[in-house]
């Protein structure tokens, strides 16, 4: 479980996050929804330990070492192979049985055929899977994913969704940030809507629709973040 309480973050004079609180329970996928600049990525980066919070607390079951993160695009090293990219992060995590762990995650994500190819020559989907393998190599109990389906084709999106469901069913706590409402609706058990650095609503998709008296999640989301329809000229 990941529990966030009253998280604050400022960059100079601008407020990035202003009192974000929510919980991501084990065995569930929690979706972070919000417009560009709403504070989703900053929240995930603080949870991942990349940025220090201005104020607030983060509790992670099992400690920070049990966290896996796929943040800020794939961020792979093009001149290294898929296996070497995964091994590097395994070593940074201080894994003991590294070969076994890397072999496991390569098999789990279906990367065997490209394991020894340099990442620079891989497709977007293969790169995303490699980045995910890198985030999973230390078998984290908790997972952070920032827009993982960006740029992926339909079969890859489907296989990624299947993988995330398997991880959820095996008890992982997953926080997923996405702009793709289809992803959010099909994957997430609960949603946290962030606008202007604060949580404006949280609950299941149905609960958000009921609360806003909207027929679709898209309408409910737009109403919650206070965006009005912009006419297309």
């Amino acid at each position: 479980m990941i529990a966030i309480e009253n998280l604050h973050k400022r960059y100079g004079t601008s407020v990035a996050i202003d009192g974000v609180s929510f919980e991501a329970p084990d065995g569930e996928i929690t979706g972070l929804l919000g417009a560009n600049g709403a504070g989703k990525t900053t929240t995930l980066r603080i949870i991942a330990g990349v940025l220090a919070p201005g104020a607030g607390t983060i509790r992670i079951t099992g400690g920070p070492g049990t966290l896996g993160a796929l943040l800020d695009h794939t961020g792979l090293y093009d001149r290294l192979s898929t296996r070497e990219n995964i091994e590097y992060f395994g070593r940074l995590r201080g894994l003991s049985s590294l070969d076994e762990r890397v072999g496991d995650v390569i098999g789990q994500l279906g990367l065997t055929a490209i394991a020894d190819r340099r990442v620079g020559g891989l497709s977007v989907g293969e790169r995303m899977k490699t980045a995910l393998a890198r985030a999973l190599v230390h078998r984290p109990r908790n997972l952070l994913l920032d827009e993982p389906t960006n740029g992926l084709d339909i079969p890859t999106v489907r296989s990624l969704r299947d993988l995330l469901r398997r991880l959820r069913d095996s008890g992982h706590a997953i926080i997923l940030s996405s702009h793709v409402l289809d992803d959010v609706q099909s994957l997430c058990d609960r949603l946290v809507v962030i606008a202007r650095g604060a949580v404006v609503a949280q609950g299941t998709s149905d609960q958000l629709c009921r609360r806003t008296r909207c027929g679709s999640l898209e309408d409910a989301y737009l109403q919650l973040i206070g965006e009005h329809e912009v006419p297309v000229c």
Partner: peptide, 10 residues
């Protein structure tokens, strides 16, 4: 190449 954030997340 946007690999700094993943690196720091370790």
């Amino acid at each position: 190449r946007r690999s700094l954030v993943p690196l720091l997340s370790n």
